[in-house]
């Protein structure tokens, strides 16, 4: 940022370069300190993963294993058929993200920019569906999907509902589409664009960061979903990665030395995706979009 005080003779600390450097140092300090707090659990996770099993349960705990070993990774990897589980999870996640992203963005756009009788009521209804806790709709939903639709042991209960918009993401998109200046829509409409055309040609390209954010959330939601696969999948060749992890958590005993390395393996795709999606957060599509 610039300073207005260019006329006065400036002391060293007012000089731009010095202030910028100072600011950077403060920025880094502010970033690094909480980072350490956030990283400690993951350090422990890594340390557990690379310990030989007999070191995991030692007391006092060992922070850095003196003989790091890949034994846990190998044993954990051979414990259940992970490649199959990955394929299944990717399949479910891909469809869920596509379905939910498309439908939620469109519904969100409609709630933000169009009007119709009962809109407020419908929007309240949409939000209300978020407010009913899953524990009590679990049984009726289960009956619906397994008895009425006969979807037991298929991926449909995990995928199909996503194609009909998810309330949180509708709300998310609505809030963002509402902050886009209306003149953009107006001028497009005057050019003869239909509201759906405005949605796809103007609103969506303008919402790069939020589309990236929503995709990431949807991905994580599907990827990490436990309850859905837990109650609807019944043959282990259809299992997902999170179900695979439950093999290490028992009623009496958690195989921490296998759970930790496999949790790391399970989170890798999400991390990679986050890295890839990053550039959409910084690109500033909106800024360029606003200039036409």
């Amino acid at each position: 940022m610039t300073s207005l005080a260019t006329y006065k003779p400036v002391s060293w600390y007012q000089r731009k370069s010095v202030r910028q450097t100072a600011r950077k140092i403060i920025d880094y300090l502010l970033l690094i300190l909480p980072s350490i707090l956030f990283l400690i659990p993951f350090f422990w996770m890594l340390s557990t993963a690379f310990k030989p099993p007999k070191m995991v349960y030692l007391d006092p705990p060992v922070w850095i294993p003196n003989t790091p070993s890949l034994q846990n990774f190998i044993e954990g990897w051979n414990y259940v058929p992970w490649p199959k589980f990955y394929r299944n999870t990717i399949l479910i996640t891909l469809f869920s993200v596509i379905g939910s992203l498309g439908s939620s963005a469109m519904v969100g756009f409609a709630f933000a920019s169009l009007n119709g009788r009962g809109k407020n009521f419908l929007f309240t209804l949409l939000l209300a569906t978020m407010m009913v806790p899953g524990a009590v709709t679990l049984i009726p939903t289960f009956i619906l999907f397994t008895k009425v639709f006969k979807w037991m042991d298929t991926y449909f209960p995990l995928i199909v509902p996503h194609f009909f918009a998810s309330p949180f993401f509708v709300f998310l998109f609505r809030q963002f589409f509402r902050s886009i200046p209306r003149d953009l829509y107006d001028s497009a409409e005057i050019d003869g664009c239909s509201p759906f055309g405005i949605f796809t040609r103007i609103a969506v390209p303008l919402s790069g960061p939020i589309v990236a954010t929503a995709s990431l959330f949807l991905f994580l939601g599907s990827w990490n979903d436990l309850m859905g696969p837990l109650i609807y999948l019944a043959s282990s060749e259809k299992f997902t990665v999170t179900l695979g992890l439950t093999a290490f958590t028992g009623l009496y005993f958690a195989r921490l030395h296998l759970l930790m390395p496999m949790s790391i393996v399970a989170m890798l795709p999400s991390l990679v995706l986050f890295f890839l999606a990053q550039k959409y957060f910084v690109r500033g599509i909106v800024t360029t979009g606003l200039k036409f």
């Binding site: 596509i98 992203l101 498309g102 497009a188 050019d191 003869g192 664009c193 239909s194 759906f196 055309g197 405005i198 949605f199 796809t200 040609r201 969506v204 390209p205």
Partner: peptide, 12 residues
């Protein structure tokens, strides 16, 4: 998504 969307959202 974008391709499909743009195809369908033609400004007719």
């Amino acid at each position: 998504l974008l391709v499909v969307g743009v195809l369908l959202g033609a400004c007719a």
